[in-house]
């Protein structure tokens, strides 16, 4: 089954409706990759609320989709991992590195907006990939003198305000 992809401003939203087969995932990957380029999207949200099992294969696939999209210039946020599923995933040792996570769509959009904000103010000179790592919990390799957690917290704080000026402008870029 094909995964529907919606465009929302600068971001793309893909809602996975059922258990994905390999072909579906390949299709999703190519589709997202194509649209990220076409719409110049900076963020992709993959909603997995409908998945009752996320095994190592699914994780690997989601991670590789995210890594690929990162190379295409978009940051990926996974949304809607259920409590049970999250618990099983960590028991298996699956942690979705390089991917953001949020409770629901709303949160994910916020997460992406914060990230954009952060990029614009703090890392104007740096490339997106490096700044991208700041978004992940507890890792900030490029901030000497601060503990990872602190840096992360500070980054979150600074990133919090909505991108009042920046976003609308860049959204026009997207269109």
């Amino acid at each position: 089954m094909q995964v529907p992809i919606l465009k929302q401003g600068n971001y793309l939203i893909a809602s996975v409706q059922s258990a994905l087969s390999d072909d579906d995932l390949r299709l999703l990957r190519d589709d997202l990759s194509d649209r990220v380029g076409r719409f110049r999207s900076t963020g992709v949200i993959i909603d997995v609320t409908a998945l009752d099992v996320i095994d190592s294969f699914a994780t690997r696939t989601l991670q590789s989709v995210a890594q690929m999209l990162k190379l295409r210039g978009a940051y990926t946020v996974i949304v809607g991992i259920r409590p049970d599923v999250a618990f099983v995933m960590v028991q298996l040792g699956l942690t979705l590195a390089d991917v953001g996570a949020a409770l629901d769509l709303e949160e994910a959009l916020e997460h992406l907006n914060n990230r954009r904000r952060r990029n614009l103010y703090e890392h104007r000179a740096k490339d997106t990939g490096e700044a991208g790592r700041l978004g992940r919990a507890g890792s900030s390799p490029n901030r000497p003198g601060l503990s990872p957690s602190r840096a992360n917290r500070r980054a979150d704080r600074e990133g919090q305000p909505r991108s009042g000026h920046a976003s609308p402008r860049s959204m026009e870029h997207g269109r």
């Binding site: 009752d52 099992v53 095994d55 190592s56 049970d84 599923v85 618990f87 099983v88 298996l92």
Partner: peptide
């Protein structure tokens, strides 16, 4: 696997554990 596990009285997170384990070995 999930259907049988429900019949056997497994609850929420155990069902996910069983389904995931089956998924892994089937894969």
């Amino acid at each position: 696997g999930r259907i049988l596990a429900v019949q056997l009285g497994f609850d929420g997170s155990e069902l996910t554990v069983i389904a995931t384990a089956i998924s892994e070995i089937a894969r």
